[in-house]
Simulated assay, not measured.
Amino acid sequence: MNAKELKSILQALQEHEVAELTLETPDYKLTVKRGGEVQYVAAPAPVVIQPQAVPASSPSPVQTQAETPAPAPTPKPEVPKEDTSRYVEVKAPIVGTFYRAPSPEAEPFVKEGDLVKKGQVLCIIEAMKLMNEIESEVSGVVRKILVSNGEPIEYGQVLFLIEPA
């Protein structure tokens, strides 16, 4: 994330009176709370340190609280995966809610198997009451839609797989 992106996020939070926002990617986790508090924690081991009030007469050290990693999931049996290396991943540029169509009664922008052109609208992501159209970066065939309509999405989450034409 560069300074320009951070500045635009902070301006949007102020304009829309959002009290708190957490943005998490594989590289970092950013939490912004109204009132000027900003936490930046590098991944993959986020740690939150909270100082505890210590009476002046007590010589005990300040305690810290660290997040504990979730237990490792049980390994699932190997299922042959489809080779997706030839596909272009369309990732979410923002955090929000994914919509496949411009309105609930309208047809979806695209379906699996549709031929799309570069610049064609694939979906809408609603973020802070703003509707953001997400366009295809390449011409090709939509092979997979990886998100359900109305589902909350994260920054950088893969939404579509497109096979370039």
Rank of each mutant, 00 (worst) to 15 (best):
P104W: 08
K117Q: 13
K117C: 10
V95H: 12
V47T: 11
D27G: 04
Q63Y: 09
I125R: 04
Q65Y: 10
L13T: 01
I153E: 04
D83P: 04
Y87D: 12
G35M: 07
P102K: 05
I125M: 01
L21H: 02
V158C: 14
E154W: 00
A19Q: 07
Y28Q: 05
V54F: 00
K29R: 14
L159K: 09
A70Q: 15
P80Q: 14
K118V: 02
R34G: 02
P80L: 13
L10N: 00
L23P: 09
M131N: 04
P46Q: 05
T74W: 14
L159F: 03
S148C: 04
V88Y: 05
Y87F: 14
L6Q: 07
V18Y: 13
P93R: 00
A12V: 08
L161M: 06
N132D: 00
V54M: 10
A45R: 08
P71V: 04
P80A: 14
P26Y: 08
R86V: 10
Q39I: 14
G140W: 01
L6R: 03
A127C: 06
N149D: 15
M1S: 11
E15D: 09
E89G: 09
E37Y: 05
E126P: 08
P164Q: 02
E135H: 08
A70V: 14
E15T: 04
E126D: 05
K91H: 12
Y40R: 07
S139A: 07
E78R: 15
E67R: 11
Q39T: 15
S60H: 11
I125S: 01
E67P: 07
Q39C: 05
P71M: 02
Q50Y: 07
L122Y: 06
T97P: 07
T68G: 10
E82M: 00
L161Y: 14
A45E: 15
L146G: 08
V142Q: 00
V95E: 09
C123Q: 04
P69F: 13
N132A: 03
G113S: 01
A19E: 12
F98S: 11
F98M: 08
Q50R: 13
A56Q: 07
P77H: 09
L21N: 05
K129W: 10
L6K: 09
D27Q: 13
S103H: 07
P61K: 13
R86K: 15
L130K: 01
I94C: 00
P77G: 02
E89N: 15
Q11V: 07
K29D: 01
S57R: 06
N2Q: 11
P152F: 03
V41I: 13
E151H: 00
E15F: 03
E151V: 12
S85R: 14
V48N: 09
H16K: 12
A12Q: 06
L6C: 02
N149Y: 00
Q14P: 00
E126G: 05
V41T: 15
K111V: 01
F160W: 04
V158Y: 06
S60E: 13
S57E: 12
K111Y: 01
T64I: 10
P71Q: 15
G36R: 10
E17P: 01
Q157V: 02
P46L: 03
E135P: 05
T64M: 07
V88F: 12
T22C: 12
I153S: 03
S57H: 10
Y40F: 15
A53S: 12
P75D: 12
S58Y: 03
L115M: 06
P46T: 09
